[in-house]
Nucleic acid binder design. Sequence first.
RNA 1: GGCGCAUUCGUCUAGCGGCCUAGGACGCGUCCCUCUCAAGGACGAGAUCACCGGUUCGAAUCCGGUAUGCGCUACCA
Length: 487
Amino acid sequence: MDKPVRVRYAPSPTGFPHVGNIRTALFNWLWARHTGGKFLVRIEDTDTARTVPGSLESILDSLRWIGLDWDEGPEVGGPHSPYFQSQRLPLYHQAAAALVKSGHAYKCYCTAERLEAMRIEQQKNKVPPGYDRKCRSMSDRERQEMESQGAKSVIRFKVPLEGQTVFNDLLRGEVVFENRNLDDFVLLKTDGFPVYHLANVVDDHWMQISHVLRAEEWLSSTPRHILMYQALGYEPPVFAHMPLILGPDRSKLSKRHGAATLTEYRDQGYLPETMLNFLALLGWSLDEKTELFTRQQLVDNFSLERVSRTAGIFNREKLDWMNGVYLRGLSLDDYIRRALPFLNKELPPDVPRPLDENYLRGWIPLIKDRARTLAEIPQLGWFFYQDKLSIAPADILIKNNQTLTLDIYHKIEDTLERVPFNKDDLEKEFRAMAASLTLKPGELFNSMRTAVTGRTVSPPLFETMVAMGKSRVLKRFQDAVQKISGS
RNA sequence: GGCGCAUUCGUCUAGCGGCCUAGGACGCGUCCCUCUCAAGGACGAGAUCACCGGUUCGAAUCCGGUAUGCGCUACCA
């Protein structure tokens, strides 16, 4: 009885997809994979004026990056090719012609200027805006007249003047619209391209879409679509309107909200598995506690019934936390492989490329648990490469005493020469030194940390020293002695 | 303005009539661990469930209204 599940992600190439767009794609994909149905991608490129170069690639890249593979669509084709609306124009023309013929639509000759003037007038008079249906009641003679003058026309849908349009939203239940609140919207523009509503309905029909899972912003236009399905004699799909993702200011996510596109998150060092997990959880939940999901667990457990109805704000802090969790869970090899692009880009340019792999394998484990994004890794490991350190005297002087510190640093240098250069021996030796100097370990270690790393915050001191290598460490202490003397 | 959708800790959410003196997570605070920072562990602050009525023995959960927020209101999608 139930039709096979066929869902689609239908972006328009008018900009780079943000997390809200991709979340919609994700829910469609999850529903298809969960049910064993098909996931299609269809490009709604009917607005030639607003098409943004590069956005198609960005859309497909985003999908690929988080692993949403499509069964039909661009690049892979499919039984309903082509999957670009700009290449399916005859279908829309046929549908529009059929609607005109059956009396469900009509040609409208109103000019943009008249429409504009009408809107201004409506605003002035505080009348609900909308097309005034001037051309709806034209006689055949008047139409012939316009045609013979070569007047440009659009095709508008003839919305019933009364009655209600009712549909059942899977998430929101029954939604009722009064037809009198709808105006006669445009189906086909003067340039011969369809408007979203027409193209969308026609394609969803021919592509046998079973469920339309789209953002809530479309809820208000759904009655138009239902009316078209009825007029065309198509069977409507199941509708489910997903909650919006809001920016920090609680308005619909848009360009204004900064790093909102998915590829920007990639460039900022977030892992695709983080984004997949996080986006899934923004608007969907399994139970009261589970937060971490593998791709397979999401596929297994996803259900439309558990999709939230309320719009949510994208919580960057939680994203950071989750990315840290995933980062820490990576194997060292995987971690290095993913960090490499960021290291190559951000580490000092005078460090030879390719980066020495042994050296990497030495220090990366020390910062592995400390980074929350891949982009932080070069920052955290910077001092493993940068030999010229700038050091504030206050951070290196012990008991704020130059002579004492100098004295201790000479001892440190002696010790370093003498002791086996491994973590345990170094720690044992320097703890003993601190004790013999009646210093707390921290007093000595923090000063040394500054000498070695140029920072007051670093991974554990002796492991850092070992990873860095004896000669480099000795050099840094020599430099430090110079600095202390000169301070 | 009209129409629609929504409303539980700062944020994401659990809850689908009694298990709720409302649970989890992020963030925040305190403590433990500790050479610093993380990570980890423990504890804690934080929501009169938007408000007002109603239904019911009993309501965060059902109904009505109000308020607020958001969305739509193009020859954009």
